[in-house]
Design a protein around this nucleic acid. Sequence first.
DNA 1: CCGTATCCTAGAAGATACTG
DNA 2: CAGTATCTTCTAGGATACGG
Lengths: 115, 115
Amino acid sequence: MKQYTLGIEATLEILGGKWKALIVCQLMSGPKRTSELERLIPGISQKVLIQQLRELERDGIVGRIDYHQMPPKVEYYVTDYGKSANTIIHVMCSWGRENIALRKSRGEDIDLLEK
Amino acid sequence: MKQYTLGIEATLEILGGKWKALIVCQLMSGPKRTSELERLIPGISQKVLIQQLRELERDGIVGRIDYHQMPPKVEYYVTDYGKSANTIIHVMCSWGRENIALRKSRGEDIDLLEK
DNA sequence: CCGTATCCTAGAAGATACTG
DNA sequence: CAGTATCTTCTAGGATACGG
């Protein structure tokens, strides 16, 4: 029997870690091919990207479409259930933006590419 | 120059990891003593708790009050700025609760103590 | 292009003991 | 009670090479 003391623990299991929220965030704007995701998420390795996608798939957050073409074409998308996490992702994005703006106004040498 | 591609990255730096959101969540309901937090967050070690609190302090999310008593009494609280993360924490809690309820209804052997 | 298989390492986290 | 200091363990994530 798995025990949770707070709901937030489940959220962290599913969307926590260094990359998952970032991946879902990118997919929120529409389906993407593997190579697109790799490009959109600088610093992530192919292995880790696929690994995280598999876990998000297992948890019902994203889906996978294989077009069975040659050369291969595969797309990932946010499932209906995954879309229920839209608010979390959105709020994390905007809070982060504000945090960066704040630190920047204090003279920190940081920058945000996202507009 | 530190570069971010999306705001969400900053959020993850500050509130990501296994424990931080959980700690802030507990503090949202009011200031707590170190020992209270230890009790409220099963599984966390004292070392890790203090460590995470120090980082949250450095990032302006929580504050620390030392009452200079003997035996020692110290309280941690969410700063005004930290309260701006209230929505994130709240949404993560409720999404997680629903996720657990969903999985439970599917027969998974899990339980949530939080009511 | 998409994915797998290895190997490897940094750092997060656990265990324990010890101070004021 | 609050906090520090070590030491150890563990695993998420990184690097690289290869295959359909």
